Computed example of a mutant assay.
Amino acid sequence: MKVLAAMSGGVDSAVAAARAVDAGHDVVGVHLALSRMPGTLRSGARGCCTIEDSLDARRAAERLGIPFYVWDFSERFRDDVIDDFIAEYAAGRTPNPCMRCNERIKFAAVLEKALALGFDAVATGHYAHIVTDDSGHRELHRASDEAKDQSYVLGVLTSEQLAHAMFPLGRTPNKAAVRAEAEERGLTVAQKPDSHDICFIPDGDTRGWLADRIAPAEGAIVDRDGAQVGSHEGATSFTVGQRRGLNLGVPAPDGRPRFVLEVRPSSNEVVVGPREALAVRELAGARFTWAGLDPVASGIAVADSTAPDAVAEFACEVQVRAHADPVPARARVVPSAEGVLELAVTVEEPLHGVAPGQTAVLYVGTRVLGQCTIDRTVSAVPATAS
């Protein structure tokens, strides 16, 4: 099989490429150049997709004896990830750029080009694995190493993308084993630190970075009843769950701290309230996809005859952050108030600090069933109760 190995310059993707070679595949390595201006992406060992990383990826490919290329995806990355990140914050949402990068760059743009060039699959160093059922359908599952499991950020993959994806590290017991294997193979990235945070914000100051791109405007900070309790210099600098830096002029009646509950860009308001109001009992989103067969075809849900294309409620677990614990839930696909189908999830125990723009990934056991970008949440504590 002809395999394109996406090589970030880290140890995981290097070992994944090596294992694809060992499996007898015809492997070609590729590094994605995501910026034409090196200073706009973080440099150093903790970076991602920097000049140093491209050189590390090239050295690894040379060690493995495979062809290596650099593909310029800077314009696509800017349009689909960076601009989307800015637009989401301007709309009062909290996006996950790594989800968008996996969805639109690594498993859309790259896979599209790979298939056009005659490749059969794209291999990456993600920690997740694919299971093929008796009928030949592919399912995405958690990695063997729970601490390194990356199935959450892969929850955006569709059945078509899974059909051409390879994750050689999925059943590896832990990261230490990957580093040891890299040492044995003579790969210079064996002890290279993992990348962290957002690659296109060089100093990690997200608030300052956004302030340079979204013109701040003064507005009101209000409580859940709409009464003004403070003011702000720009709503986009606030995130759900934030406590510090709220600049409140009116204390809460009970004297307790207030937290950001909601950002309303249309009115330029920031809504604050008690900690318990951060508890969410329901979330929903119209932008949803299934990672493989949908719930009806999988046999875990039935079609809802009263609503075309909708499915009856089914049991699952939902995870709203990359390293959060999944919680038991009931999910369903139903028409929203606007008449658009949305994935709605009711949790059995409240989730805390969930914001529109985040991604909710559904699991059934270790299997990733699908995901949605959260459009709205319902607090477990009514406004009148706080």
Rank of each mutant, 00 (worst) to 15 (best):
E146R: 10
A116C: 08
A91F: 14
R138F: 06
V30L: 14
D56F: 04
T40R: 11
S54I: 02
D79A: 15
L64D: 05
A114L: 04
V70R: 10
G65R: 03
I86W: 07
S135F: 13
A128N: 11
A143C: 14
Y89H: 15
V28A: 13
V122T: 03
L140I: 12
D80Y: 04
D53H: 13
H31D: 01
I51G: 11
A90Q: 13
C48S: 14
P97F: 05
H31I: 06
R100L: 12
G136E: 06
A114I: 07
G65V: 03
H31G: 06
L140P: 10
E75V: 07
E88V: 00
V30G: 02
A123Q: 05
A121Q: 10
C98I: 11
C49Q: 10
P67T: 04
V28P: 06
L117A: 15
D83Y: 09
R93D: 06
P38F: 05
A121H: 14
C98N: 13
G47R: 04
D72I: 08
G29Q: 11
N96P: 04
D26F: 03
A123V: 07
E62M: 13
D79L: 13
I86H: 05
C98T: 12
F73N: 00
V110Q: 02
H25P: 09
L111W: 05
D26V: 04
L111P: 03
I105K: 03
I130H: 05
I66W: 09
A91L: 12
H126D: 13
M37H: 15
F107D: 00
D56L: 09
A91W: 10
F68T: 15
G29Y: 14
A60R: 03
H129T: 12
N96H: 10
E139S: 10
A57T: 07
D84Q: 11
T132G: 07
V131F: 09
D145T: 09
I51H: 08
D72V: 04
N102W: 07
F119H: 07
R58L: 14
V27M: 07
A114Q: 04
E112H: 00
N102H: 09
V110F: 01
G136I: 09
A33R: 13
P97M: 06
I130D: 15
R42E: 08
G125T: 14
P97L: 11
S35I: 02
V81D: 01
G39D: 13
W71M: 09
A121D: 03
D80F: 02
L41R: 11
R46H: 15
G136L: 03
G118A: 06
F77H: 15
G136W: 00
H141E: 02
L115K: 12
R142V: 02
A45I: 12
V131M: 09
I130P: 15
D56Y: 01
D79T: 13
A60K: 04
I51W: 09
R36V: 00
H126S: 01
G118H: 06
D72L: 04
V131Y: 14
I86D: 09
A57C: 10
R142G: 11
D56I: 06
A121Y: 09
L117W: 14
N102M: 07
F77N: 08
G39L: 06
L140K: 07
C98H: 02
T50W: 03
D145F: 09
C48E: 12
D83S: 13
T124G: 08
A45M: 10
D145M: 05
